[in-house]
Design a protein around this nucleic acid. Structure first.
Lengths: 223, 223
DNA sequence: GCAAAAGTGTTCCAGATACACCCATGT
DNA sequence: ACATGGGTGTATCTGGAACACTTTTGC
């Protein structure tokens, strides 16, 4: 199994997950710092080698839960990365996934192989091993694109939220200001969210009506 | 490497390619009939096991060339399929690709491991092994979707073509009639094709002007 | 009463749609 | 001259973009 350079020459498959959330009005990615070999003390994407009888989706889900304690969130296959030189220690194909976590809902906790987990802004990422930066970048592009033609943004929302909360999510991901009236008109016309009877009072201003998504967990195509 | 059921329990990665073309005014898929084991005499997607030092894209390209003689065409990664039970003989993850071949340009020829190659209409596919039917279906959805927001249809065109030829391609893939004037207006406005000085004379009617794509080989996002 | 965010409608413009007739050729 | 597919323009509709003031609360 080892060739004469000490390199394992069997093929392995891993799943790696780019976890996005919006914290402190910023789009962030969840990274873990591994305590074990081969990458001691370096921040990397949560991930795992694929079990011999394990489904790809299940592997990504498990990697996410084991490494970060996050579960029950939107998770979708992104792309497979397989340059022979991407990992110098071994030949590993990475089937990458991305996940969206509702803002401030989950407190990720390090798994038993991890030193720490942490949220990082996209423009403040630490050095990442292998092609993890390319994976993050591909996931970011996918997220931006899907915002335009699907209800993917709802996956960032807690069970109830205000229209301003939702608009903030769009503005942060698209990195541009949106018109409040047009945004509300479009969202309400899409028939994907509904008003609750509740309002949120905070600060010294008019309370905001709370909404909920009509089909939580489902990402639908719109337009 | 073999367990006591005679099943190889190492993980393997394959690339499989869904090749589309438009022949006889129909969207067709290219299949190969394997002469060797394990699938003797059954039609399947062209594909290959990934070499230990081979890039995924290179593997798909090679599989396509080896199995069908097709090369130099549009080829893009589609999705990775990895259900543990998808292949009962071995644990194989398939990284699927799809390719588009210009109509009537290439004459596919069987590779040395193949019995035959053939084009099949999507609603006239033979029984396919593993999850190849699901892979074809996923590729078909991708193709339909990309037609709307990219110049992917140009990949089906020969070097020069008439606007009616191009409209036929759209109508076949979308399976609906399009308005001739609106189609021409939109295509010409997109600034992606240009008129040549040539015309094509066939049949007893006015000759049609031939066009060419401005950026052949590139698939651009439009709209 | 003032500061702060919530909430609400109309006009304008651009791009998509619907639609019918003349043109150039071969036989 | 006629049959065949090639080629063209205008009116209408619809969805997106721009834009400013009133409301409700806390202090």
């Amino acid at each position: 199994m080892m060739n004469d350079q000490g390199v394992n020459d069997t093929l392995q498959v891993a799943t790696d997950v780019v976890v996005f959330s919006i914290l402190q009005q910023t789009l962030k990615v969840l990274l873990v710092r591994r305590s074990g070999n081969p990458v001691n003390g370096v921040w990397a994407l949560p991930g795992s080698l694929l079990g011999i009888d394990e489904d790809l989706d299940a592997s990504a889900k498990r990697a996410l839960a084991d490494d970060t304690g996050v579960s029950g969130v939107f998770l979708e296959q992104l792309y497979s990365f397989g340059k022979p030189e991407r990992n110098p220690q071994a030949r590993v194909i990475s089937v990458a996934y991305y996940a969206l976590v509702p803002s401030e809902q989950l407190r990720p906790t390090p798994g038993r192989n991890d030193d720490a987990v942490g949220w990082f802004a996209l423009d403040r990422l630490p050095a990442l091993p292998f092609d993890h930066r390319e994976i993050v970048s591909t996931a970011h592009h996918r997220l931006e694109a899907k915002l335009d033609y699907s209800t993917i943004a709802f996956q960032f929302m807690p069970p109830t939220f205000t229209l301003t909360d939702l608009q903030d999510v769009y503005e942060i991901i698209l990195n541009q200001q949106l018109d409040k009236r047009n945004f509300r008109k479009r969202l309400l016309a899409s028939d994907q969210i509904e008003a609750t009877e509740e309002k949120r009072r905070d600060g010294n201003h008019r309370p905001a009506r709370l909404y909920r998504v009509k089909h939580p967990g489902e990402v639908q195509y719109v337009k």
